[in-house]
Design a protein around this nucleic acid. Sequence first.
RNA 1: UCCUGAGUAGCUCAAUGGCAGAGCAUUCGGCUGUUAACCGAAGGGUUGUAGGUUCGAGUCCUACCUCAGGAGCCA
Length: 480
Amino acid sequence: MSEFPTISSLAAHEGQTVTLRGWLYNIRSSGKLLFPTFRDGTGTIQGIVPKAAVPEEVFETLKNLQLESSLTVTGKVRADSRAPSGYELDVQDIHVISAVSSDDPFPITLKEHGVDFLMEHRHLWLRTPRQSAILRVRATIMRAAAEYFDTNGFIRTDPPILTPNACEGTSELFEMDYFDNDKAYLTQSGQLYVEATALALGKVYSFGPTFRAEKSKTRRHLTEFWMIEPEVAHLELNGLMDLAEAFITHIVTRVLESHRTDLKTIGRDIAKLEAVIANPATEPGAPGSAASSPHLGGGATDPSLLSSRSAAEGSASRFPRLSYDEAHAMLDAAYKAGKLENPHKYGDDFGSPDETYISSQFDKPVLVHRYPAAIKAFYMQPDPDDPTKALCLDVLAPEGYGEIIGGSQRVDSYDLLKSRIEDHNLPLAAFQWYLDLRKYGSVPHAGFGMGIERAVAWLCGLDHVRETIPFARTLNRIYP
RNA sequence: UCCUGAGUAGCUCAAUGGCAGAGCAUUCGGCUGUUAACCGAAGGGUUGUAGGUUCGAGUCCUACCUCAGGAGCCA
């Protein structure tokens, strides 16, 4: 394959004659000069074709070629300060693999298009530099997320996608027939199942698609999205917060390491991401920092994940942490100062404008913990210091990107969990296996879920999650 | 589900109730350093659908369809 170097690697081929495989991204002309721009999925490079320097056939072929025709192009790599990438290609020869017809030209032009048109042509929109850059960053985020857990002693245990019942009994689920008499539902969270695998293996995570049939029509919602969900036996809320912070820090670090060019293509303000991981003095969760425990069977605990509350609130804490009460007080003060349109009612969940305001007060993600139990899921452990609060956690991304992580310590008492299920009018029989986890050697445990697409939207600075996934599924769209 | 807004050329958009327009794209012509190149010309329309008001409707009215943004709910 080395005979076809990628465009991203051309700096190493300066002065050499190379043959690239790619597509015609754009072409301009000036009399007897052609300026074709080629792309190959790794980048773009502008070629230059003086009529006098190439065979007549090469000049005429290129001059009449439609955008997105596939081809191989041979030319000499030359550094040029006028080129955006720093290099140009002095074209010597081309070979057209497949020519696009001028009767039906490539629909995505370099001009602006509307959202509907672009989404209808998503399969072709992906070829544009910005969309390709986003998908590269997405791939790194997914890899870094899995890598964090893989290198810290977690075992990946993926839960089923077809489930027999509602996990939390709240969200709208996609329903389907399961053979003769049963209904099946697409999973809305693997959490209940990773609780089971966590009690088997200690530290686990799942990573897969998740489905919500809610009719949400906003820039933050997809009906199908990817979620990564760690679950850890013997972990309590403060350790969970440490884990979330180290996890996010690792992902941001990886993105900054290898995607500065892509982030620039996307138009991301990189300084905002650098601020998230600033203060490198403490790096408790980075891979290789001896945080992982080699064996976590039985009752072993991982000291790195069991920091006490006082430790969590000490100097090691780099992301701001607010209790629900503190966040409410902040919103209350903001409303009284005229910075918020509507008051936040104590006891209610935070609305979108509330989350935006809270996160705008910091340049790092904010951890909000201990929400009122009444507005949270049935499986969340009550706070022993104030049983009206749940030992839960939301992570709000900066710049108004909202909730990217939600998690909690889980109820570990059989009796309490059973009464919670009954209070929520959930079918006890369907949850018997879940109750078994509390019957046989229950321990405190905790976990969270991070929505990949919201994380990608935040890290790339996108205003809509539909650009964060190759083919977004939304309320009104399931094509292409 | 609710609220708001938008549907006119392949795309992005103009058009006081009075002849259907521009830029890009396509085709033809011009230009030896273009950066969404530029200059000239040509072709390209059932104005989302169905009714209604009017001498006359892209424009006003009614219903419906599609899409977008927001709310609720959530990651």
